[in-house]
Amino acid sequence: MTVNFPQLRAFLAVVDAGGFSAAADELGLSQSAVSHAVASLERELAAPLLIRSGPVRTTALGERVLPYARSALSAVRAVTELAEDAGTVAGTVRLASTPTVCQGLVPGLLRHWRESCPRVTVRVFEGDSAEVARWLDDGTADAAVLIDPPPGPGVQLALDGYRVLLPRDHPLAGEPVVDIGDLADDPLLISPNGCEDRIRALHRLAGLRFGPAHRVRDLATLISMVQAGIGVTVLSEVSRSLVPPDLVLLPVEPQTARRLVLSGPRDRPWHPAVRPLAESAAARTPS
């Protein structure tokens, strides 16, 4: 059996792009060349990897092959880029993060990296916390901004404290700090992702019952509902740049925070350009 780099690259491109035509555009090849590469891989494995009728999707075997293909390509890409220019940091790094961090923290990082590591291209992928961790594990992403990861390699970018979001005409909007207990009569709006666990813990620390009135996935919708006076919510400090002028983001008691950590994968070598990015980010982060 002979499985090669072009075969794996074509297979992954079809999966990631959602079809053969889009994969061909991504790779700069003809559609027939991509189809031939995937078909030759399937012949080597003696089984189909893709279901071609309707939207292209993986077979059961294709789903099992996927993480190994990603790891193999990641390793080949890393070795190739090291060999091409051993003395200069260069290449493309795929960075995954959650929407809030992507909007509130990542733009500043990208601007910083453009100046400090000009030969590194960073492509950003946005997903929820579980998706981000999975992408880093299976090789879809080369690096990620993780929320409260276990001890290990990585650079802490921020200790991201939680804040209460209120309309400017709310009775507590002028307070320097808001006790969560003072909002017991306000309908609570939350986003059902990693933040929900933090907000639940905040109520537990205060000895309060946790009973959200609405669960809203999209952050923009959540903010719009606070603007409309439907309720209040708790957001992290990194969300501050997204807060419109008719709302205020105030410190909340009891205090709680999350760690935002830039890291590469835990179980395989990092892409050559990830560590310089992490070191550059560490130099930028206040101690």
Rank of each mutant, 00 (worst) to 15 (best):
L219N: 01
V3M: 14
V234S: 05
V261N: 10
I51T: 13
R266I: 02
P192R: 03
A96L: 05
S241K: 03
G87K: 03
V178R: 10
R200C: 01
R64A: 14
R259M: 09
A90L: 08
E44A: 03
L95P: 06
A158M: 09
S53H: 14
L262V: 09
F210M: 04
S280E: 15
S71I: 08
F210A: 08
T100E: 09
G181S: 04
W270D: 09
H271Q: 11
P171F: 01
L157G: 13
A46G: 09
L27V: 00
R134E: 05
A22Y: 10
P171G: 01
E175H: 01
L166Y: 11
R64C: 05
S97T: 11
L262G: 02
P150E: 14
L249T: 02
L12V: 14
L61G: 15
C102L: 06
L61Q: 07
F5K: 14
A75G: 06
G108W: 11
L50Y: 11
Y162E: 03
L249E: 08
R258V: 14
E84W: 01
T59L: 08
T88G: 05
V34F: 00
R52A: 09
T256Y: 05
S30I: 05
V93W: 05
L61M: 13
C195A: 13
L235S: 12
V177F: 01
A278P: 12
A23E: 09
D169P: 01
D160F: 00
G152I: 15
E237F: 01
A184M: 09
G28N: 12
A39I: 11
P272S: 11
D185I: 07
R114M: 03
V3G: 01
V243Y: 08
G174F: 00
I223W: 01
Q7T: 09
L29N: 12
L189Q: 10
V106G: 03
R9Y: 02
I199W: 06
P171K: 10
T58V: 09
P192Q: 01
E126L: 00
V234Y: 07
R43L: 11
E131D: 10
R77W: 06
D197L: 08
